[in-house]
Design a protein around this nucleic acid. Sequence first.
DNA 1: TCGGTGAACGTTGTGTACATCATTGAAGAT
DNA 2: ATCTTCAATGATGTACACAACGTTCACCGA
Lengths: 231, 231
Amino acid sequence: MPLTEDAPPSARDRADALEEELRDRICLLDYPPGMRLAETELAEEFGISRTPLRRVLARLEAAGLLVSVHGVGTFVTDLRDEELDQIYRLRLELAQLAATLDPVPPDAALLARFRDIGARAGALTPDPACQRAFARLIMDFVLAQKALSANVPLMDFATHLYFQTARIWLHSLQASALDLTEEMTLFAREVAQVTAALEAGDLQAAALLHRAHVSLSWTRIRQRRLTDPQS
Amino acid sequence: MPLTEDAPPSARDRADALEEELRDRICLLDYPPGMRLAETELAEEFGISRTPLRRVLARLEAAGLLVSVHGVGTFVTDLRDEELDQIYRLRLELAQLAATLDPVPPDAALLARFRDIGARAGALTPDPACQRAFARLIMDFVLAQKALSANVPLMDFATHLYFQTARIWLHSLQASALDLTEEMTLFAREVAQVTAALEAGDLQAAALLHRAHVSLSWTRIRQRRLTDPQS
DNA sequence: TCGGTGAACGTTGTGTACATCATTGAAGAT
DNA sequence: ATCTTCAATGATGTACACAACGTTCACCGA
């Protein structure tokens, strides 16, 4: 694995790392929806030319996170309420499929990873400055779940859908449309429940619990949407 | 829509058209798995430089149809039996989800499209020269089904998975691992049954029929796999 | 004052030359 | 004869200059 080796990273490794970095910045709202990204500035920041950068931007555009307009700029995409609902409906179904298709019992290392996430979730404080750490923790939780099924296309797609919803959810959180304390408490509870189910070896229960919490999260977003309708 | 307008196509239109063309060539086995694609030759064929071509190749690589290796070449990917099975298992589940999540009753134009596909399927002759036309017809059938659900991410993903399996299935067909006459007959029957269900307004039945035929197709591939095991 | 027009500017898209990498083949030492 | 070495070759990856495009704002006319 190139991440631990001290060998010089290949072109593919550099591109993958750059894509992951930009994706995180988008999902963690360093680059909020609608923001314009200047190719020249980004290339300068990462010490590369526009050519390899544009290759990464093309992949992010294919993933639906960016959109480039000739002569205007490259913008972070936004999601209409309808699109967000479609994605959430899909995420609910896929959450259960993960336990049905090619489930993989977690090993000791993975269980430790879930426990660590739970510990960090319990240590969160409802401080606006911790919102980014909170969002990153949720991302780690979703990424850890990828190992619970050997069905690679399924888990990749589920993660892809999460990346779509993450920034919208976090945007609602930052806009105080959601209660930070409540969200943190519920997330800590979700991680604890899912981890307990995994330790009991019941992947089906873990999937149902995750699905239930995703559904509740979606419901909270929809409820807040009625008060201040957007585009 | 830019396809019917005589206005000069934008850069995005050209890239989309090129990606579609290359994707079709891969899925129709003009470029079989393992084949090397020379960027210089492709760029020359389409009358462009390597720069915009590489942008399209990057998207196809993100879609899992190509893989580029520095200093060696760009190759059409192959699927191991295990990967193919994972995708088929997933396709079966998604086929039903299409009728559950945001189903859209077909309008007259879409029904006519399905009937046309059925007519062309009935006119197929078990001639090896018609294999490509057969594969294209199946592709049209899958693409027409995209309109049966308003859940864009779901249908896009289902189509994406089809593109993965299509070339492997066609490869088995060309290797005479599958019976051409039988496959044509079964496909014509599937289209007829699905169309009848759609005309009756029963999207759930249409989805179940499609799922059943995908499952049977997968079973036929697996049965043939036992006789001559591959990688 | 208001509306239209066009030139300047900044952005993404494209072409081209070069760098980097992996393979291949022949030449040389053992 | 066989293994090693390395130069030649052709591929993808990168940098840079320029073209194409859309916006903006100043200017001009009514």
